[in-house]
């Protein structure tokens, strides 16, 4: 059951200061309304993972690890690999995170990122089959939030995409007679097949202002957010409105335009770090 969350206490003086600055089209960290905070991306951050990335977005820190395993395909897609996305909001990341299974916010974040990758087919699942109908690669993508400084979704999305782009597939020997697959993780045979890249851009509404990439404090006074997933070929591949407020049609259109304008530079930064950025092949 979903329950109205307790409001986090933010000193009224701080809230007023944020609003006053917005009227002058400024934010407390001196950014413009449509500017992202500085982004740092380090790939192959976790040696034991098949692919990984660490992302720092402002003060938010997130690590994504990708692990590959052999398993059975889903019954309705017998000739495709499987992508599973999970997110953990670990207690060390914020005073507001409690230990326990993922809460509705962690689940929502994981599912939004999952959908943005899955529907657009960013990872070419058809190329992850080992024995058709029986054995496929399972791609476990785990998002680990280390420090909550606001806008966890975009930070996670950048980390997820970067991690997938550097993920290597281990050598797998398939015994067609016994149906067994032996994996040798000391040898890597290929990169994960990526058809195109995706990144999310989150915009918050405060009063009549739309601001991109909200900080933790800005998130306390925002009552509505909209996250738009954009692909490397300029398509909209996911949208999620969250928060207890509402948006006019104009707000939505404006937010989508901002996202379409800003996504390319984020994707470019990922490419610069990773060294490759696939665009959609047909």
């Amino acid at each position: 059951m979903s329950v109205t969350p307790q409001a986090e206490l933010i000193p009224k003086l701080k809230a007023d200061a944020i609003l006053r600055l917005l009227e002058r089209k400024e934010r407390i960290d001196k950014r413009g309304l449509e500017d992202f905070r500085p982004i740092e991306i380090i790939t192959n951050y976790i040696k034991n993972a098949e692919g990984s990335a660490y992302v720092k977005l402002g003060t938010t820190q997130v690590v994504v690890g990708v692990k590959l395993e052999v398993g059975s395909p889903y019954p309705d897609t017998p000739n495709e690999g499987v992508l599973i996305v999970n997110a953990e909001f670990v207690p060390l990341a914020s005073p507001s995170f409690e230990p326990g299974p993922p809460d509705e916010n962690a689940i929502e974040l994981a599912r939004v990122i999952d959908r943005s990758l899955r529907e657009y087919r960013a990872v070419d699942m058809k190329k992850l089959v080992l024995i058709p109908g029986k054995k496929v690669w399972l791609v476990w993508l785990d998002i680990y939030v280390l420090d909550h400084g606001g806008n966890l979704i975009d930070a996670s999305s950048i980390a997820a995409m970067a991690a997938l782009l550097v993920t290597k597939i281990p050598k797998a020997e398939v015994n067609k007679d016994t149906g067994e697959v032996t994996i040798d993780k000391t040898q890597y045979v290929a990169e994960l097949p990526i058809r195109g890249s995706v990144v999310t851009v989150t915009i918050g509404k405060i009063g009549n202002y739309l601001i991109i990439d909200p900080t933790y404090e800005e998130e306390q006074i925002i009552d509505t957010k909209v996250t738009i997933a954009v692909s490397s070929d300029g398509k909209i591949v996911g949208i999620q409105k969250s928060g207890m407020g509402d948006l006019t049609l104009n707000d939505v259109k404006k937010a989508v335009n901002i996202a379409l304008a800003k996504a390319p530079q984020i994707l470019q930064q990922i490419e610069n770090t990773v060294g490759r950025l696939k665009t959609t092949e047909n």
Binding site: I236, I239, Q240, K241, D246, D251, V252, V256
Partner: peptide
Amino acid sequence: AAMPGKGVITLLQLNGVLTPEEFEEAL
């Protein structure tokens, strides 16, 4: 989902792929 009288949207999700033009039309 929306409050049509007030002209505001309260639920919006997209699962799939749309071009920006298709998105406007869909709205």
